[in-house]
Design a protein around this nucleic acid. Sequence first.
DNA 1: TCTTGACCTTCCCATGGTGGGAACCCCCAT
DNA 2: ATGGGGGTTCCCACCATGGGAAGGTCAAGA
Lengths: 146, 146
Amino acid sequence: MNIGEAARASGVSAKMLRYYEETGLIPPAGRSASGYRTYGPRDVQTLRFIRRARDLGFPMEKVAELLALWQDRSRASADVKRLAEAQVTALEVRIAEMQAMQATLRHLVHACAGDDRPDCPILSDLGGPSAAAYPSLAGGLPLAKR
Amino acid sequence: MNIGEAARASGVSAKMLRYYEETGLIPPAGRSASGYRTYGPRDVQTLRFIRRARDLGFPMEKVAELLALWQDRSRASADVKRLAEAQVTALEVRIAEMQAMQATLRHLVHACAGDDRPDCPILSDLGGPSAAAYPSLAGGLPLAKR
DNA sequence: TCTTGACCTTCCCATGGTGGGAACCCCCAT
DNA sequence: ATGGGGGTTCCCACCATGGGAAGGTCAAGA
């Protein structure tokens, strides 16, 4: 299989395949005589594993750990579970942060007339000197990706 | 006020202050004879506005729009409200994605013994050929920032 | 007056994952 | 032999932020 086919079969883009190889997440693929990367069904399986772990929100670093455990036949399932639980917690934190933002926003939206007059509690709140309950310490929130 | 003091007073780091200026979000600050940037209470208020909008998860682009509306005395509150509502929706989407991940993860965690044996449904699921309900199309999720 | 330390300046680099695209090579079918 | 659809490497951009180097400035205390 060439890189494009492996990408289609695994759901990981060719671009990412090269990147994963470069960063050492996966070992260098074999090469054809003319320098093309070649992949087997086993590689595709590994890539699918990675893809799914990413889809569950694991950062690359954790994906690497999961991958290592997956390939270690003498692993303890407790180690895997720990990673998964940590991810659940990480998600919880992020979700809570965003929900706090949402609560504040909904409150403000509710108070805004939304007509053609300039008075707007949303702006006065953002601009005001008040200490207002801001969810601070949030993340940059790259809203919308892929 | 020098940049450090303005940073402390507004909650925006000096680094970000320079960056906001560079990208045109805020106009260039005045300069002292020796080249130091100088800020007044009004600037601090603007910075606090920006900080709060960021804390509500607005991306820079939207912050710029909010800022423009804030400074436009003839704005229609409807425009502000629209922006805020869009942000609520954006957050909703992200939250839903993460909750889907969490649901899948919790399910898997629940099924894992978490002892010293190697058998682990989490790994078999990630590695398996099954189509399993993966929340795909999620974000990169830069977990943990600031 | 001189030193010291806390401040400021600009400039470059890194992050995390991903996509875009240029410039070039290779393989197969017509 | 030619064209199109692969592949390869390399660099750039995103978004918003932090880190740090190299050097100029300011104010307080000796």
